[in-house]
Amino acid sequence: MSDTIRLGDIAHARSGDKGNHANIGVIAWTAVGAEYIGRVLTEQRVAEFFLPLRPRGVERFPMPGIHAWNFLLYDALGGGASRSLRIDTQGKTLALAILEMRIPRPSNLDEMRFASEDLVAARPQG
């Protein structure tokens, strides 16, 4: 058994742009997972992971009601939607990238996986 897991094993995410800044919302599947992510996914760790994109800084904000942490990556988009020379001018793929980050395997991993199959499966129409 690997001693690390993918962040994507216990969370999902969405990212986008605010001018030349990017935000990445990391949403844990469970409250236990959110608490664990709060310990391992520090501003420093996120800044190191995305270092090649040269963010000026990273700031983290809690959203406990949805088990989430919002990361702001300042000046990480190479000029933003109007001036960036990159294919992903708006940082839309940062979410999928951060979910590939390896983090230490928690002993209580089972308490962090999907709370319910309903969260990913298509449900009957209402």
């Binding site: 986008g16 959203m63 919002n70």
Partner: peptide, 26 residues
């Protein structure tokens, strides 16, 4: 919610992703 009979998914997870989309300090 979304119209009856349409494709897609409205779950706490899909809505959470949109809630956090392109926000700064929540």
């Amino acid at each position: 919610t979304k119209p009856s009979g349409s494709d897609g998914l409205v779950s706490t997870a899909t809505v959470a992703e949109q809630l956090i989309y392109e926000i700064g300090d929540p």
